[in-house]
Write a protein that binds this DNA or RNA. Sequence first.
DNA 1: CACCCGGAAGAGAA
DNA 2: GTTCTCTTCCGGGT
Length: 475
Amino acid sequence: MKVVSLQLPSGPSMERLPLPFSPTELLWRYPLPWAPPPPSPLGDTKAQLPAGLPPEPRLWTREDVAVFLKWCEREFDLPNFDMDLFQMNGKALCLLTKTDLGERCPGAGDVLHNVLQMLVRDAALLGRVPSSPVTPTARAAPYPPSPHSHPPTPTWTVDGFHHFHSAATAAAQPNSVTLSPAPSVDSSGSPQRGEAVNYAPQYAPSVPNAAQAASSGSNHSDSDEEAQFVPPPRSPKDVPLTNPAPQTHQAPQHSHYRAQHREFFPNDMPESNTNGRLLWDFLQQLLNDPTQRYTNYIAWKNRETGVFKIVDPAGLAKLWGIQKNHLSMNYDKMSRALRYYYRVNILRKVQGERHCYQFLRNPTELKNIKNISLLRQQMSPTRVVPQSVVKTEMKEERCEEETVDEDMPTDLSMAASEPWRKRARSDPAAAQPLPSQHDKHRISALIGDNMMMKREAEYATEHYALNLKSEKCEQ
DNA sequence: CACCCGGAAGAGAA
DNA sequence: GTTCTCTTCCGGGT
């Protein structure tokens, strides 16, 4: 296992390295005075739950479910539910998808689902019943059980932010990540397996020592992977954090969260809505972890220019696999995903340095890509268009004026540029004619040719740093 | 051997 | 059904 010894755990151990959680989720969950959460119809639902109703929906009895439904009818002005369709306990209720709920109560399924999701997450965050922290909660984890969660993918546990937690508890519950069993491995998605893990009385460090697993070979079969998720004996390298920030799963205290949040995601002003679902976002979250817990996996080499190094490729891939619930993820696969970012100028490889990449866009830009993609059909020369149209449009755009920044592809759609890449590579003649340098530059930005991209990359480096600075100033 | 690259096909979510 | 973002697999190069 290749481990760079930093000040944090000397060996990457996912048992004590909770993944960052979605900042947007917390914004949503824990309204900040200066950053009001997105309006939620659910509002202060939890506080208004009928007295006597356990806050953890999965612990509800049938009667509790009935009480809850009645309460929902009143609270959200929903049509009366057919209680015959809800003869189930809370656990079963939570297992219903939004669709299921919609079928049982047309017009109210979304609301019901959202409320349940919120309650489940709240319960998890409060440390009562761990939710799936690492894998996307939607579809992967038993909890929340629905594959149609909304908000979509609040994913992370909040353990990294609880500095207030007692040292004793921290020692007993080292910053751990509770990993749900691998649904992708077990296609049955048996909730029983999840229960066994997730109803544990405390947050057992059930995330595998993914780094160890990964480092022992990243091409296991799925069954191997699953086996790996039994926490192996702690290696001598897995010394406790010397960092004074104990990582636990206690309920967050808002004030602490606030303070940390500002540090953690100073660039997260725009709502990304990705929540670590996208690879670049995931990497940013790890890189920007305020307590630097992931530096054994990934670390900035030069934050100003966006250059980072994947310290433990196998371990990082494992983390990513956990996040995406693809437990057979390895560095080879993950790096393929990274390479897709080349062509859209999100990343580039740092030549000559292994596992070194550079963000070509700073976090704000990246997060704005979501918005850009909404606008791209009107404004972006590299907008997503049906592939059949790409060729024609490219010819027309060839003569467009270009500034490096604006024309750097921001479109995350691989499809948009793919035809050109294909043409250029598989059929060089087809990429012709390229009558001018200008055109070459143009095409290069699309096809991500490293040489031709150099100018943009250099620009992006400066651009990245400049934006970073300006964002800091805004703080 | 590990890393890196990119094509191809397809999955899964929105 | 379409689009997006990967995931998976692969052959080939360094």
